[in-house]
Design a protein around this nucleic acid. Structure first.
Lengths: 102, 102
DNA sequence: CTCTCACATCATCACCCGCTGATACCAGCG
DNA sequence: CGCTGGTATCAGCGGGTGATGATGTGAGAG
């Protein structure tokens, strides 16, 4: 399969702050306040990034009183892992598949 | 390990054109001319992206006469795959690790 | 030797994107 | 209820980034 990885998800994870958020969320479920403390970013900035992550389907929200908890969707990361593994696998055999010079 | 994935590599792969290039190179080793044909992008544009991919350590160049062949470095993709797998694994158990509301 | 082609580099421009401040919304609590 | 605090949304600004054209370099053909 010519499974090209979904560029959107990768682009979303390409931002350093968002990647930090994802790394934090991979350890524990956190709410916005915690993320503000951990990252040092402004709340409004965080909220923006969380929206991006939400729309990319990487995180889920879970309201708890007036707090909003975020947790990762492991299957998305697992999917990425698989797709990269497939690319790596394909790349290993591609070294010999050299198209002729024109 | 709190192996946060390298943001640089991911950001490089976040660009749709570069991801297309990587997908193509995962199938066969190609030179710039082939990539121009396949992607429809300008040569100078391609060369820019190839430079980015080269500096990110994702591809290797192999001169062949006056042509330059590019091939992927599978270990980079494999590393990404592992790191995402680790994140996904960690995320699966993180759902219960909910930090208390402040 | 010279000319041509493949490729890389440089400088420039325009545009997208993330950061910021202001503001609206919603849930508890008194 | 009204107030307070946590969160989301919106408009605007500035910097980073990708696309483009001109130019340089090096290898092979004639």
């Amino acid at each position: 399969m010519l499974t090209s990885v979904d560029p959107d998800v990768i682009r979303v994870l390409g931002d350093p702050l968002r990647l930090q958020i994802v790394t934090l969320l991979a350890r524990e479920t956190l709410c916005t306040t915690h993320l503000v403390e951990e990252t040092g970013a402004r709340q409004t900035n965080l909220s923006n990034h969380m929206k991006v992550l939400r729309e990319a389907g990487i995180v889920e929200t879970e309201p708890c009183g007036r707090f909003t908890y975020y947790k990762l969707k492991p299957e998305v990361l697992a999917g990425l892992s698989e797709q990269f593994a497939a690319l790596a696998d394909s790349a290993r055999t591609a070294t010999e598949n050299k198209r002729a010079c024109p």
